[in-house]
Amino acid sequence: MPVTLFQKKQNLANIGAELAQVNDDIAQKAGNPAIEDSVLNELSQKADGLENRFNMLKRQIDREEQDSAKKAKQAEPSDDPKQKVTDAYASLIRTTMANQAVGTDVLQALGDDKTTTGGQNILPVTVSNNLISEPMEDNPLRQDEIVSGITNLILPRIAYSIDDDDFVADQEVAKELKLKGDTVTFNRFKSKLKVAISETILNGTNTALVQYVNDALASAAAAKEKKVQFATAPKAGEEHMSFYSDEVGIKKITESTMFDAITQAAGDINDAFQTNVKVYMRRPDYLRMIKELSNGAATLFGKAPEEIIGYPVRFTERSVTPVVGNFKYAQLNYEIASTLYEQWKDYDNGVNYFSLTAWFDHQILLASAFRLAVVGESPKE
């Protein structure tokens, strides 16, 4: 049977008492010349052995008490609203990984108001909001696009109009509105995001567990988003999500050099979209362009892109052809109320996953606000 903490403390007290007695014997007999050295050596060895045992047992007790205190602190309810959400989220993850039903108290703490159904099929609103609203550096488009979480979202293709204004009369905008209609309807496209969780992480602190899962989900979501937003060969039904899709119909500007293609593409965009125009391109393409412009000198490498091409540049490895435009006219929308969470196991590799199934859509509201900068043989005048 395992030795309890109480029993360990009793043993420690007994060893301590015996050690004290041996040390007293040594003190008394060491001052008596009639006592043989061998007797004192035996007592000294006995004292050393008892002291080693005392120290080993004391370390075990200290470690066990520290672990107990840590667990008690984790279990202790917090008055901090953020910590309450963290604790509830950690409980949701652990319960899901154990294939158990999530308690209504946990769902309520996370903001799920559908307690009449138990909420088993709904990721709490608080968790979903954290997933879609926190800035993710891995997907730079989130810095420039609109990111929302609205169910059955329908938007006007142009958000404003002015009397006697000729903006909508612009040929390209007018053609697009006639072809695509005045409104944009966001649909539901499923994406499964899986986070591998080890026993060490699962049994760690609530804060560490939640941070790990959130970071992994954010990275997975960003990777999925970029994959569809810059897909050169989109999946059937997802063509409208990609800047490169012929279905979207973004105008291509072809020039013989990267610099000319980008600057001409930016200049070709209507004045109404010029505010907040940015360039999305690959870093190697940008550096190659700078090298060509500087003709081998290093003078341009330390300058900001705005000083060279006149517009800010965002780098992503998926923008194989530079995309130039006002990215406020593209939007990413998640359906929060439809998000599912579950436990999933890869039996071949023996890895357990916290799986999140989310539905989202990416819409390019107005293709006229964008251009593709293509390097090739310039069209003849």
Score class of each variant (00 low, 15 high):
Asn11Ile: 09
Asp113Cys: 05
Val351Cys: 02
Ile146Met: 15
Thr183Asn: 04
Ala231Phe: 06
Arg282Leu: 07
Arg283Pro: 10
Phe259Gln: 08
Asn295Phe: 01
Pro135Glu: 09
Gly310Met: 09
Leu153Trp: 07
Gly181Lys: 08
Ile132Pro: 03
Thr200Gln: 05
Asp348Pro: 02
Gln21Ile: 08
Phe189Ser: 12
Ser368Val: 04
Thr151His: 07
Glu145Asn: 14
Glu247Cys: 04
Ala297Gly: 13
Asp182Val: 09
Gly325Ile: 03
Arg314Tyr: 08
Asn41Gln: 04
Thr205Tyr: 02
Lys71Leu: 14
Asn270Cys: 03
Leu155Gly: 01
Glu225His: 09
Ala216Lys: 15
Val85Gly: 01
Ala216Met: 02
Thr207Glu: 11
Asn214Gly: 11
Gly49Lys: 14
Leu365Ala: 04
Gln66Phe: 08
Thr185Asn: 06
Trp359His: 15
Val22Lys: 04
Thr339Asp: 09
Asp62Glu: 09
Arg157Cys: 06
Thr126His: 09
Glu137Lys: 15
Trp344Asp: 15
Gly302His: 00
Asn276Lys: 06
Asn121His: 10
Gln21Ala: 15
Gln45Leu: 11
Ala90His: 00
Ile26His: 01
Val127Arg: 01
Glu42Arg: 01
Ser355Cys: 00
Glu238Ala: 11
Ile290Gln: 02
Val184Phe: 00
Gly103Thr: 05
Thr86Ala: 07
Ala30Gly: 07
Arg314Ile: 05
Asn214Met: 12
Asn32Asp: 15
Leu141Arg: 06
Ile290Ala: 04
Gln21Pro: 00
Thr254Arg: 06
Ala218Met: 12
Asn349Glu: 10
Ala216Gly: 05
Lys114Ala: 14
Leu193Phe: 05
Ser378Ala: 15
Gln45Ile: 12
Phe167Trp: 08
Val324Arg: 10
Glu137Leu: 15
Phe230Arg: 05
Asn41Asp: 15
Lys194Asp: 05
Ser161Cys: 11
Thr263Lys: 15
Asp105Ile: 07
Ser355Asn: 01
Gln264Ser: 11
Glu42Asn: 09
Ile146Pro: 02
Asn276Thr: 13
Phe360Ile: 03
